[in-house]
Design a protein around this nucleic acid. Structure first.
Length: 436
RNA sequence: GCGGGCGUCGCCAAGUGGUUAAGGCAGCGGCUUGUGGCGCCGCUAUUCGGGGGUUCGAAUCCCCUCGCUCGCCCCA
């Protein structure tokens, strides 16, 4: 293949998709605004150490999925694989945490060096929320409902909210020992993968998709049983708040999540319409991270939502229900007016009137090809504009344009009546007419 | 990193060893230099992801390579 191509897993967003993305982003921004969140934008590139310390050396993300290189100043740099570590770093760096609780949202590209497949790319996009400095069980529910409400508002169907509690560090340490002991006694029944994890990251074995392992795990001790009374109580409180908010949730005791910084509440919002990559949104509590990165002990909670996966769900929802809100979000804008013009004087006038109508707020497409009228009409039809404004030299001479309504099909039997003339200097009148 | 499937025009796609590489959509031009969606006519791949080999002859067989895709792993 001699033709230059984008890198594997790096995807172009073409115009038919960018309009949908903008629509989704604007709905999200509005939700965040009403929740009192502020946007934060951090660099795409950070010191490798930030992610190594924040996410955890033993995790897959850090161990094998990062885009890392050494820059000209001999620093090890990494393209961000997720947003949370950077947000915490920025809050710390600028002393934001000493000003009380901080509520952020962010969005943008993330990078993970993985084999692409359905719902998984090397450069992908997330929008996310981080609540820093708030530790109540109530805030867990408040932040989760933000994600849930956004998805519901966008018209996504068939979502499941799965939640679990990972307890405290001590809870996990205690459980880890129990689990390792239990699994070691049955190590002959483990697959290679699980055996490898036994000592690096045993909790992740719980998440295995291997049916044999799942079967075996049926009788394993669960994390929930190992939780302290306080941790259990806290988690129950979160569940009560979710119920009060009428968010249906399912306890998933195997839900562990792959980033080291999570503790207590962890959750995922999944759909059965995403193939193997079922999670559209995931997050949880990460009370230890701020300290881990050199800050004061600070409770925190957040989530990230995958834009590409969300778009997949929106497409599915729109095709099932063409009148629903998902379909509305997917619809692209069409021009109000297409200016058909030909002739020296007419073309000059058309340029000016197009400019004036745009200034007045209409979506106007100007044909500047100088092609024959029938060509221009053909393009006007294809542009899906509501109206055509026709200006030839006759009209230009009189300072008028012909308005033609394009939304009704012409047939042989019903040739379109020729429309109406309208003064070109009456811009507000034109705008009113087009807007109806 | 490991498996499976696939690669013929911008898109969909026929062709499975004999030579002129169907067809549809889209695009462009014309019928139509003043009125679109319908119709009719014409044009658009010396070439089948790339390289090498077998053969008198290859899009069709073999080898290598690149890419896409789905799954494992992991996660958004």
């Amino acid at each position: 293949m001699t033709q230059l191509q984008s890198l594997r897993g790096m995807v172009d967003l073409l115009p038919e998709h960018t309009s949908r993305w903008q629509a989704v982003e604007s709905v999200a921004r509005d939700h965040f605004r009403r929740a009192g969140l502020q946007e934060i934008r951090t660099p795409l590139l950070e010191l490798t150490e930030l992610f190594a310390r924040g996410i955890g050396e033993a995790t897959d993300v850090v161990g094998k999925e990062m885009y890392t290189f050494v820059d000209r100043g001999d620093r090890s740099c990494t393209l961000r694989p997720e947003g949370t570590a950077s947000v915490v770093r920025a809050a710390l760096q600028h002393g934001l945490l000493s000003q009380g609780p901080q509520r952020f949202w962010y969005g943008g590209p993330m990078f993970r060096y993985e084999r692409p497949q359905a719902g998984r790319q090397r450069q992908f996009h997330q929008i996310g929320v981080e609540y820093l400095g708030v530790g109540s069980p109530r805030s867990d529910a408040e932040v989760i409902v933000l994600a849930w409400a956004l998805l519901v508002d966008l018209g996504v169907q068939g979502l499941v909210l799965e939640i679990n509690s990972l307890g405290t560090l001590q809870d996990r340490k205690k459980y880890r020992e129990e689990l390792v002991a239990w699994l070691e006694a049955r190590s002959d029944q483990l697959d290679d993968d699980s055996r490898k994890r036994l000592h690096t990251n045993p909790l992740r074995i719980l998440d295995s998709k291997n049916p044999a392992i799942r079967e075996l795990l049926q009788d394993a001790p669960t994390l929930f049983e190992a939780l302290s009374v306080e941790s259990k109580g806290r988690f129950e409180e979160v569940q009560v708040h979710l119920e009060t908010l009428q968010i249906p949730s399912q306890l998933n005791p195997r839900l562990v999540r792959g980033l080291d910084y999570y503790g207590h509440t962890a959750f995922e919002i999944t759909s059965d319409q995403l193939g193997a990559q079922a999670t559209v949104c995931g997050g949880g509590r990460y009370d230890g991270l701020v300290e881990q990165l050199g800050g004061p002990p600070t409770p925190a909670f957040g989530w990230a939502l995958g834009m590409e996966r969300l778009m997949l769900l929106l497409e599915a929802a729109a095709s099932i229900n063409p009148d629903g809100s998902a379909a509305r979000v997917m619809a692209s804008t069409r021009p109000d007016l297409y200016v058909v013009n030909r002739g020296e004087q007419a073309e000059r006038v058309a340029l000016v009137i197009a400019h004036q109508l745009r200034a007045a707020g209409l979506v106007v497409e100007l044909d500047s090809s100088g092609a024959a009228f029938n060509k221009q009409f053909k393009r006007a039809g294809r542009s899906r504009a509501t109206w055509a404004l026709v200006i030839g030299d006759d009209e230009a001479e009189r300072g008028e344009g012909r308005l033609k309504y394009l939304q009704e099909a012409t047939t042989q039997a019903n040739p379109t009546p020729i429309d109406q003339l309208h003064r070109l200097d009456d811009v507000t009148g034109l705008v009113r007419l087009v807007r109806e």
